[in-house]
Amino acid sequence: MSQSLDRQRLLLTGCTHAVALTSVAWLMLKVVQSDLGPDPIKTLLLTTGEWGLWCLIASLMVTPLRSSSGAYQLAVTRRPLGLWAFAFFSLHVLIFLQGYVVWSQSLLIEELVERPYITVGFLAWLLLLPLAITSTLKWRRRLGRRWKSLHTLVYPAAIFACLHILWQIRSDWFLASFYSVVCGLLLGSRLFLYLRRRANRVAE
């Protein structure tokens, strides 16, 4: 039984990595073949940002899916999903630096100071940075109970990521609102459970 569970876990992590790696390979192929249209920088920026958001949302879905379905082996996908979210967001930042601020420090500072949607987007990435670093088992052991509280930083990161896309709505509000509603539900349900737990504790 436990062996089959291990195999399932291995399969789940393997699949997560395989899908993400294939996507990256596909995108790199498109870059090499110059097959991303006349403005590849914009396409790459939007694609990596959106894929990162998908991974972030998926990682936030793991816990509610696990507890509602009882499929506890799902938990192993949380780390790869979170790490891929960080990887795609890092690519997103790199493409922004290469294509938009062309590695100019003064321009970067100007963008960060003057454009709030870039500021919050950068903050989201910055909040995920310590989570990516402390994602290893070693760090988890070292931090003990604090590891869990540190990793609640993913919640503000998700909020900043949503602000980042909502702030950019120009002519169509659908997609940005859709992602934000999904994130809102995922965070809201956690807040609800947390408040209920606390109320119960107080009642006792």
Partner: peptide, 23 residues
């Protein structure tokens, strides 16, 4: 005169590419 959400000082002359943004 910048757009409130982005700078208008530069432009990407298309076609551009990842390694030479043509800014």
């Amino acid at each position: 005169v910048d757009h409130p959400r982005w700078s208008q000082r530069f432009e990407r002359r298309l076609p551009s590419s990842l390694f030479s943004p043509n800014r």
